[in-house]
Design a protein around this nucleic acid. Structure first.
Lengths: 341, 341
DNA sequence: TGGCACAATGTAAACGGATACTTTTGTGCA
DNA sequence: TGCACAAAAGTATCCGTTTACATTGTGCCA
């Protein structure tokens, strides 16, 4: 059906190996032959059969992307597309393809990854999560399959990963509130088993203590990456005897819930309560007021993660942990200057 | 490196072909042999090499998903993840893999798809857009490669596609507003070259005329799927001498912009202006007020589209155009009963 | 002018698995 | 006991490429 190297060879009056060498830019092929063969390849619309190529080269030029299990996916939901764009841009540039996989539970996921690795389906993997102590990670290390985590792992410091400096990001966000004159600052947190949550928490407390501001237990509430979570966390924090006048919020979606809850309770943002959050998804500028958020460079995360796996495949030395710069995007929700108090 | 069929055969004391037949569940293999071979496969952690298998079977068990070009991607942004989950669920169930591809411009995209098709990389394709008169579609038809569009194509009625009944969806949404007592209803539209836009427009006008309500030029504004677009469209509509008291909005993201604009201008939602929109992305319930939106069954769209390609590959007869049911999710933004007028 | 180096190309054997065709083994029956 | 015939398994070839090794051809030098 499809055009093969043999048909090209026949039409060009050369042997299949010559055609193969033309494709590979082998030095010992004469200009003349090369040109003629290329013409015929174009004429016949020849494209090398990747399966055959892979079989002999033992490489697939394919990177697998493993989605998190549905239970952990919520964070990803809103920047998945941009992330994939970044991944795809890098892979396309390097002539690699992207295979997407995932399972609905731990076992299914492990089976899928095992199959991809053992059947020689991919040359490397990108794990879109940073779950601690994971059987998938064990497997990949054992099989010596190059892989990169999105977000650092709590358990393995030496596993290659791309991440933001979340400590610094939260530090910056909190500092920004302090610079606006805020003294009572709370923190709406995420699941504490995630490195991201721990890091942002650390940045928050660091900024507080440096500024000599109080850290109060009741001002910090752990939530999840769910729509209602922010709402509940906010209610808990604001019901304290002396509630904070500013909140650092672990994620934009949670911030949406907080914002809504605060508004419903009659708080004015930012006059009564100022907020900053993280990830800078598109809709943060469409809320009322627009939300100040830390842009984490989603596209760049995807782009760099792919670059890392590719480097690992090419046996190039890499830094085990690559940091993507963040940027605080200041919007109305955190600006004290608007306040008349 | 990896375990091959030969190693399994050797260890089991049979020939490679026997092992191959065990894998394929060939009828003429004795229970006993089959069991022994399977045990050894497990023991060695054998997984068939997909490349070798593909080479001889001339099939890849892989479906390609082609992303829209960045310029047209905005709509997709917020439900991409759910869509992919649907696709992946169906493919995994059927033992297929998902290859993701896309280009930054028309030529790049065509080259990518050509390569996937000609090099035998995929057995079928899913196009996540429904651009009219597309060179990619021409190519796929010519190469007899099974493919399914997401959303119907304006130019080719007979191209397989999954879609909502957008006429009916917009009709339902508009009717809902009418049932709430609305008489002056405007429409914030999208790019008219899209079938989706045309269909929703048609449903809107149909509902109006059935109810004997006026259709006014100035009440209908074409926008784009951009954040600011809704804002501008709203401004234009509301500056009419006699502005509408309700708006049907082509998409949730646009509706966010409209909502923000209306609120800033001092309109109360839904008392002064009621709104309904489409797609029901997660954040519609977190706006103030929450937005009534038509759920289009994103997961189901992905799931069904994949099912269609798989059927085409198996030469099963399919309906060229598959309709996914929609569902109006009523929230505060459209409820007139709240009004005191 | 024979011999040699080297460039250009050809030949053939893999890569791992599927399968048409062939051989071996086993069973029932005359 | 021998034979037919079916079940079970083995042999060999092919899928489309790459590549080690072999062959051919040319020019140059002793």
């Amino acid at each position: 059906m499809a055009v093969t190297i043999k048909e090209v060879a026949k039409k060009a009056g050369v042997s299949p190996s010559t055609v193969s060498r033309v494709i590979a830019n082998h030095p010992r092929i004469s200009e003349e032959t090369s040109k003629r063969v290329r013409e015929i390849m174009d004429e016949l619309g020849y494209h090398p059969n990747i399966m055959a190529k892979s079989l002999v080269s033992r490489t697939t030029r394919t990177i697998g992307v493993v989605l998190p299990r549905p239970a952990e996916e919520l964070l990803l939901n809103f920047f998945f597309y941009e992330l994939i764009r970044g991944v795809l841009a890098q892979l396309t540039r390097s002539g690699y393809d992207l295979l997407m996989a995932g399972g609905t539970n731990e076992q299914e996921e492990l089976e899928t990854v095992t199959r991809l690795v053992r059947s020689g389906r991919v040359d490397g993997l990108l794990l879109l999560y940073s779950r601690a102590s994971d059987p998938v990670i064990h497997l990949l290390r054992q099989e010596k399959m190059p892989f990169v985590l999105l977000g650092r792992s709590l358990d393995y410091e030496d596993v290659p990963s791309v991440d933001n400096d979340n400590v610094q990001a939260a530090y910056d966000a909190t500092k920004h509130l302090i610079a606006q004159g805020q003294r009572r600052i709370g923190f709406v947190s995420g699941p504490t088993k995630l490195a991201m949550t721990q890091d942002r928490m650390a940045g928050y407390t660091k900024a507080l203590s440096e500024a000599g501001l109080p850290f109060k237990e009741g001002w910090v509430v752990e939530g999840e990456f769910l729509l209602e979570s922010g709402y509940r966390a906010m209610a808990s924090i604001m019901s304290q005897p002396e509630p904070p006048t500013a909140l650092v919020i672990i994620d934009d979606v949670v911030a949406f819930g907080v914002l809504k809850g605060l508004t419903e309770l009659g708080y004015r943002i930012p006059q009564d309560v100022a907020i900053v959050s993280f990830n800078n998804i598109a809709l943060t500028e469409l809320t009322m007021p627009p939300i100040t958020s830390v842009d984490v460079g989603t596209y760049q995360l995807g782009y760099t993660a792919s670059q890392m796996v590719l480097r690992m495949i090419q046996q190039v030395e890499i830094t085990a942990r690559q940091i993507i710069p963040h940027r605080l995007v200041v919007r109305e929700s955190s600006l004290r200057t608007l306040s008349l108090t």
